[in-house]
Design a protein around this nucleic acid. Structure first.
Length: 106
DNA sequence: AACCTGACTCGCC
DNA sequence: AGGCGAGCCAGGT
């Protein structure tokens, strides 16, 4: 399984109504330094409808400025539909919606 | 085939 | 406390 496939696998496991940071996804792959690669993986192959990439945000809760589904605005909208709260227009309330732990992808 | 870059993050000045 | 460089992978030039 390639690194990218692992990324998609991990992101798919993020429960509805929760968000994970790039770093958390990277940890699920066994190497937290892959955080940058995680972002790139989602960038090039979002697999629309299958991978909930809108549930992946930065460590500080900020949504991606380069979100591919119609802007960061669209990402915020999708999250709100799942019941995710925001501290401001672009920052997710990490204290309440960040996943506690992500399973390790082998 | 080597080099550059990109939805990131953390540790050291 | 804020800025800078390093580490990781894949694809395009």
């Amino acid at each position: 399984m390639t690194t990218f496939e692992k990324v998609y696998e991990a992101v798919r496991l993020i429960p509805r109504g929760s968000v994970a940071t790039y770093g958390q996804v990277a940890e699920a792959l066994g190497n937290r330094r892959l955080s940058r690669v995680v972002g790139y993986a989602l960038h090039v192959n979002p697999e629309p409808g299958v991978i909930p990439c809108h549930r992946v945000v930065r460590r500080d809760g900020a949504v991606s400025p380069a979100f591919a589904f119609g802007g960061a605005n669209r990402q915020v909208e999708l999250l709100r539909q799942e019941g995710v709260a925001f501290v401001d227009e672009t920052h997710v309330d990490m204290a309440h919606h960040r996943v506690r732990a992500l399973p390790l992808i082998v």
